[in-house]
Design a protein around this nucleic acid. Sequence first.
DNA 1: TACTATCAAATTGCGCACAATCTAATTGCC
DNA 2: GGCAATTAGATTGTGCGCAATTTGATAGTA
Lengths: 158, 158
Amino acid sequence: MSPSNSTPGPTSGLSLEQQICYAMHTTVRAFDAVYRDLLSEHGLSYPQYIALMSVGEHGPLTVGRLGELMHLDSGTLSPLLKRMEAAGLVGRARDPQDERRVLVSVTAAGRDRLAGLGDVPRQIAVRSGLSRAQLLDLQRTLQAVTTALQNADVPTAG
Amino acid sequence: MSPSNSTPGPTSGLSLEQQICYAMHTTVRAFDAVYRDLLSEHGLSYPQYIALMSVGEHGPLTVGRLGELMHLDSGTLSPLLKRMEAAGLVGRARDPQDERRVLVSVTAAGRDRLAGLGDVPRQIAVRSGLSRAQLLDLQRTLQAVTTALQNADVPTAG
DNA sequence: TACTATCAAATTGCGCACAATCTAATTGCC
DNA sequence: GGCAATTAGATTGTGCGCAATTTGATAGTA
């Protein structure tokens, strides 16, 4: 009764639409590996890098606003920011205007860390093997897919 | 709606090549959310679903072989398979030919679980909003990127 | 004022992913 | 046979991500 003795075909079981997600996961982990390679020597993970960039660029941000930018919630961000604070990269302080909010800002050490990174985006682009046009096209596709997936996300809302 | 104050520029700091990875991560999480929506009622996570599919299709597999298929190592697979075994979905047994190896096989309950899932790949394809041709194209791009990233993964090898 | 609802962040619990280490079995070589 | 090197999984420790809950602050209202 083992189904493996006569498989219908080499690619029949895992159909196209499935392999797409499989490919997505694989690609993301490949990206993560390259980021680890580039960032680990600077003591940063990819999420920490994105967070540091976001806070550095957009000034003091609330945890909620940063979560909107990174598409993450406080369950992920709170411990992440705590570690970054412990590393001296960011500062956290309650907003005096609204004590519910916590304002996250980059420290001088955080800016130094960013400045010492070199051109990470260029490294990534080069290693991806894609041209600028291809990258743009891929990005557009991904954004479209994301929007579609998120909008279809509530099937039985009625 | 207030973007706080007057930030230097909306897209100045985060350049193109960077947003590509940002987009990748966001898209993958959107995929994950849809999979959770489809699979959670069946008591499966996405990795468990892929593992169950792989073992079901390719017959008894060693942990190492399954790891090659899923691009995961024993540090991830061992606890995952342990949970699936506890759930009665797969069986694990040392290979009598080589006691180092552990053979993973799908149980009858595992097959039932798979059979009860419905057409998950079609659901994903529909929700992605992409045509079959677009999916194929995206998949090809992702595979190319993955290969490029993995090959560029060893920078100072020479 | 007091009472309720809402909101922001933190916390808890679970699972995935990876690096590093450990254990046990096999292979290779003498 | 005996012993080092290799191989296969499991384990440990850390971090990411999400659901659910909790804590504390702010509105809103009678």
